[in-house]
Amino acid sequence: MSEKKTKRRDFLFTATTAVGAVGAAAVVWPMIDQMNPDASVKALASTEVDVSSVNPGNTITVLWRGKPVFIRRRTKEEIDEARKVKMEDLIHPEKDEDRAKNPEWLVMLGVCTHLGCVPLNDKGDYNGWFCPCHGSHYDTSGRIRKGPAPLNMEVPKYEFVNANTIKIG
């Protein structure tokens, strides 16, 4: 067999395999992507909450995208405690000013950043939240202070539609 003929065959094999691989990937992708959130799940992206009945020191929990969202009306002491913490003491440094634009209202996903449990209110060593699953302690700004969780509780995108209504999402 001549050198030239072998090369021609090699090209055909490579080209066929490449086209075949692209074709297979094009068939596999829909099979994988069908497991991602569907249109009806994505449609439930935002929710509006009336917070007029929440008193200072109280927290309400609402469901957004299947996850609990904590809305806490913080007391003066809680705000002061959250704001005087030094950044060096934090595992995931974030200023309270950035987490709660309106200091009285703390809105965050009530989901522990360790493995997704719902932390308990007014518990733990930092007067904030405590996750019963694996012992993560959060402060009055929802920041991780002690335990296995790597991050602060997430602040979702939200806005005050008017003085009494918060729109999450």
């Binding site: 994988i32 991602n36 569907d38 799940v41 995208r65 299947g66 360790h114 493995l115 699953c133």
Partner: peptide, 25 residues
């Protein structure tokens, strides 16, 4: 929730994998 969240420990793509496993948020 806890077991599927184990995958969120994977750097960069972890959160995406968890959403994919759940088919939601």
């Amino acid at each position: 929730t806890v077991i599927t969240n184990l995958f969120s420990a994977i750097p960069l793509v972890g959160e995406g994998i968890v959403t994919w496993l759940w088919g939601g948020y």
